[in-house]
């Protein structure tokens, strides 16, 4: 059964050219000033493999990695041969122009600050 699907996969994938993606394990935090921090685990991905885009109210992060190729035989395999992708829906209060990201040791960190006027402000009472 696997063989049938695998052998026909070449023909169908050639047509659709769909990439294989896996969802990265992610932690989302919010700090006291309201800004968000997304930490997504993408082992094997370096800066060049990262693609981040904002479309309407969606934040899309994609991480591509080169798979270790050995001329040996595979004894045991758990690492998924797929790239990473995740889509987040953005709150209207996030300032898209100031979204920043960096990747270190396979962990992508995206900071999403809030737009200035949305931050909690204290209003002093006159008189």
């Amino acid at each position: 059964m696997n063989h049938t699907i695998d052998s026909t996969r070449e023909t169908s994938e050639a047509r659709t050219t769909e990439e294989r993606f896996v969802t990265p394990a992610t932690a989302i935090r919010q700090s006291n000033d309201g800004s968000y921090l997304i930490e997504a685990e993408m082992p094997g991905v370096s800066k060049e493999g990262i693609e981040i885009s904002v479309d309407q109210n969606e934040l899309i992060i994609t991480g591509r990695r080169a798979f270790p190729s050995t001329d040996g035989r595979v004894v045991y395999r758990e690492i998924r041969r797929a790239n990473f992708r995740r889509v987040f829906e953005l709150d209207g209060s996030i300032d898209r122009n100031r979204i920043a990201a960096r990747i270190e040791n396979g962990v992508l960190r995206v900071t999403l600050p809030l737009a200035e006027q949305v931050k909690p402000r204290k209003i002093t009472v006159e008189g």
Partner: peptide
């Protein structure tokens, strides 16, 4: 003190 978790899969 980076803040509270909304979601953690790590």
């Amino acid at each position: 003190d980076e803040g509270k978790f909304h979601r953690n899969e790590r």
